[in-house]
Computed example of a mutant assay.
Amino acid sequence: MISMRKVLALTAVLAFAATTAEAAKIHRSYSYYTVSGKTAADLDKALSSGGHLLKSTGQRHPGAAQIRFDAKARYGSNGKACRVTGVYVNVYAKVFLPRWKQRRTASQELALVWDTLSQDIKRHEESHIVIARSHASDIERQVKALPSRPDCALLRQDIDKITTRVMKDHDAAQKRFDRVETLNFEKRFERLLTYRLEREFGKSN
């Protein structure tokens, strides 16, 4: 069985800004970089040296997700108290993924390994977006539930406390996800590859 190493050290780059807007949405975009090689060792080297460079780590990674939160809170006073009138959190995600130049001319075995690996990398990055979306929903829910305050300055402080706390939780959740994924990568990849092999052999028999 062909195996690859050092292929899953992924992270999310986070930023946060608070402004006003109309609605909460998930915005995805994809960017691809080319890797070249005719053997598993070639591809492993290409992924390590040609992956997306993250400024936060100074290292290149096979895949990466840059995630930005754009929170929009609206609130106003009726002269007696200030209350939240609307809140939305948009998540912007830019995903960087590898694309193998020799995929169409590769051996069936190596192509199978690559397809399994590249799909797992994409799944990993999409999972980062799911985690971000969950925390964006937390911000919306908690801010909407805030009680009115005597003045808007106090309400603004409450909003800031919530966003700061949830973003801290989000950062921890992303890092925890990466640690678990990295620890389980070999077993997961072997299981996925075995499933694909069985499926392919099943079709040919």
Rank of each mutant, 00 (worst) to 15 (best):
S3G: 14
A136C: 07
N184M: 15
V89H: 02
E140S: 03
R103Y: 15
K6L: 14
K144N: 08
E200C: 08
L197W: 15
L110Y: 03
A23T: 01
S137M: 15
G76W: 12
K168H: 08
Q66L: 09
A153F: 03
K94P: 07
K187P: 09
P62E: 03
I131E: 10
T163C: 09
A172V: 10
Q174L: 05
A73V: 11
F69T: 00
V95S: 02
R133F: 10
K161H: 08
V35P: 02
E109A: 05
K122I: 13
A17E: 13
F69S: 01
G58L: 03
D42M: 01
R74W: 12
A81L: 12
E200G: 07
A132Q: 00
E140Q: 02
R199P: 09
I26Q: 05
L146E: 07
T182Q: 14
S36H: 14
K25E: 06
P147M: 06
K6G: 15
Y32T: 06
L43H: 02
L192D: 06
V91S: 00
N90P: 02
Q142P: 12
R176S: 09
V180M: 07
A18P: 09
R28C: 05
L97D: 05
R60A: 01
L117G: 03
V84G: 04
R176Q: 11
Q142A: 13
K101D: 12
R133W: 13
A73E: 03
D138Q: 15
R196D: 10
N90S: 07
V84Q: 01
Q119T: 14
R103H: 12
A21L: 10
V166A: 04
